[in-house]
């Protein structure tokens, strides 16, 4: 069964000269780590927004854990997914505990059970000593880790991460990737986007490379590399299909 199945997805924003998504199709199996890769402007953010139900597609189908992403199932799907946006979606003036308590409350979690869960994850991510420190006093890596905790408090079956390791140090990145593997081993599906292709190659079970609103290819990283003798890694594959032209 697929955790995410997208078929012929189309989207053109109002006033835009060109379509952002032009019949995008891909699927990732349940319980796996899938990587959605593409250069700037490929349509990754729009795809994620449609997957989450924030943006309406003009056409095509989206299934999340076998549920169609539509108004009737939107609330159910929200319970299944957790999203880690690229920005640090936390209140800088509040401490980690205050931030996480607020988002936990919004998920309906409360009291001692919530507090214990927060403290557990803070410990997992090495933030227990800074639990009551305001977020704006955190380093970049600490903020990224706290940002992930806010998305997993309700223990989602599908975790969507948009550039979760952007701008963090090696230690933080290692801890984040280690956590994602362990969260995946517990049965959760993960959709991950990144520009760090070496990281994607080592983390993802499958990757889908998209460009200009269309899917270019999908498969296991090692298979994709093997298919092209001149390519030594995923970055070579990516450049082979998307070219060297700048995407500003």
């Amino acid at each position: 069964m697929a955790s995410i199945a997208v078929k012929e997805l189309r989207k053109t924003y109002k006033g835009a000269a060109e379509a952002t998504l032009k019949g995008l199709t891909f699927a990732f199996p349940e319980g796996k780590i899938g990587g959605l890769l593409g250069p700037n402007g490929a349509g990754k953010t729009t795809t994620i927004s449609i997957l989450c139900g924030l943006v309406q597609a003009d056409g095509g189908d989206v299934m999340i854990h076998s549920l169609p992403q539509n108004a009737a199932h939107r609330e159910q799907i929200k319970k299944i997914i957790g999203i880690v946006p690229q920005q640090i979606a936390l209140y800088p003036q509040l401490s980690a505990v205050e931030n996480l308590t607020y988002f936990g409350n919004l998920y309906g979690l409360k009291g001692k059970a919530l507090y214990e869960k927060i403290m557990h994850y803070l410990e997992v991510f090495g933030l227990e000593k800074s639990a009551h420190k305001e977020i704006h006093k955190y380093s970049g890596g600490m903020k990224r880790r706290a940002n992930i905790i806010a998305a997993i408090l309700h223990e989602p079956d599908l975790l969507i991460l948009d550039e979760p390791t952007a701008g963090v140090d090696v230690q933080s990145r290692s801890m984040i990737l280690q956590f994602l593997r362990s969260y995946n081993e517990q049965g959760a599906s993960i959709l991950y986007t990144s520009h760090l292709l070496e990281e994607a190659q080592s983390l993802c079970d499958e990757v889908a490379i998209m460009d200009e609103g269309r899917m270019i290819l999908q498969g296991q990283p090692e298979s994709l590399i093997d298919e092209l003798p001149e390519c030594r890694n995923l970055e070579d594959v990516f450049l082979h299909y998307t070219g060297h032209a700048l995407r500003d």
Binding site: C52, G53, L54, E75, K78, K79, I81, I83, P85, Q86, Q87, I88, A89, L90, Y91, P92, F103, L106, Y107, G108, A150, A151
Partner: peptide
């Protein structure tokens, strides 16, 4: 809106109107 917490709130089940 800029830091993404609005996005996060909208992705949480339940009505955003209550927030």
């Amino acid at each position: 809106r800029e830091d993404g917490s609005l996005l996060r709130m909208k992705l949480i089940p339940g009505s955003y109107l209550l927030i």
